[in-house]
């Protein structure tokens, strides 16, 4: 890995996102709108306080997964990836460059979503608010890592989008948003223990209900571990020589 090249990849990806105003607006504004919608639906009930933390964990993950799988697929099919791999670029330069760029976008997205939820919509947070933000960013990097990995298995952008329901929706169903994880049937509870989003949602929920941060760091470490594993798996799918 070469820092100069990693930084070049990250800067280039950010420039492309900046140029695409519509995508940028969707990335930043949409999560806020959806959170507001839920707050409005459940006003005068305690539901928003219960699902709010899970939403803050889900949005960065879903959005970054989608954006990354489509952009890297485009990079594979346009020939730019082949060109880069024929240059002195390490595979990790490419992957980490993407993770850094989307991590930064996620930081802005998370700052807006957390600021809105806590500042305007009165989401109750007992733990430190900044840690909520950290969890959201790590979660976004996880989405990016899985998106990079999955893009290797899609031949078209259409297929890439179809990986969303396959990879993301089961995690949303089992992460504790619909039913607390300890009330799931044993087999499903066991499966939910293997899914990274469960840990991100656990971390967010702990933060909103307790001032104790030990468990949060443990959950965060698991999410970060999955992100690193995702990037490593992604590196394995980038081949300089292709058939």
């Amino acid at each position: 890995m070469t820092p100069r090249i990693t930084a070049a990849v990250a800067a280039r990806v950010l420039r492309q996102i900046r140029r695409d105003r519509r995508t940028l607006a969707l990335l930043l504004v949409l999560p806020c709108l959806l959170i507001t919608l839920l707050w409005w639906m459940f006003r005068d009930t305690p539901v928003f306080d219960q699902v709010g933390p899970a939403l803050l964990a889900m949005f960065p993950f879903i959005v970054m997964f989608l954006v990354t799988s489509v952009t890297t697929l485009r990079e594979r099919s346009s020939g730019t990836l082949e060109r880069l791999l024929a240059m002195p670029m390490g595979k990790l330069d490419f992957l980490v460059g993407y993770a850094v760029a989307f991590g930064l976008v996620a930081a802005v997205q998370a700052a807006l979503a957390v600021g809105l939820s806590v500042g305007l919509l009165d989401l109750e947070v007992i733990g430190p608010v900044w840690l909520l933000f950290v969890v959201a960013v790590v979660d976004a990097v996880l989405g990016t890592a899985l998106g990079l990995f999955v893009s290797a298995f899609a031949q078209t952008e259409f297929q890439a989008v179809q990986f969303m329901p396959a990879v993301v929706i089961p995690q949303i169903l089992l992460c504790g948003l619909f039913l607390p994880r300890d009330q799931l049937p044993d087999a499903l509870h066991w499966i939910s223990d293997l899914l990274p989003l469960s840990y991100a949602v656990d971390a967010m929920t702990t933060l909103t209900t307790s001032a104790e941060t030990g468990d949060v760091w443990a959950d965060l470490a698991v999410v970060a571990g999955f992100a690193v594993a995702g990037l490593a798996a992604g590196a394995a799918t980038l081949r300089r020589r292709t058939p």
Partner: peptide, 20 residues
């Protein structure tokens, strides 16, 4: 094999940094 959403100069500046 260039990025459609960047200008020629932006494309070239990027690849120039990769090549050093």
């Amino acid at each position: 094999s260039v990025y459609d959403d960047l200008t020629p100069v932006e494309n070239l500046s990027f690849f120039a940094r990769v090549l050093g």
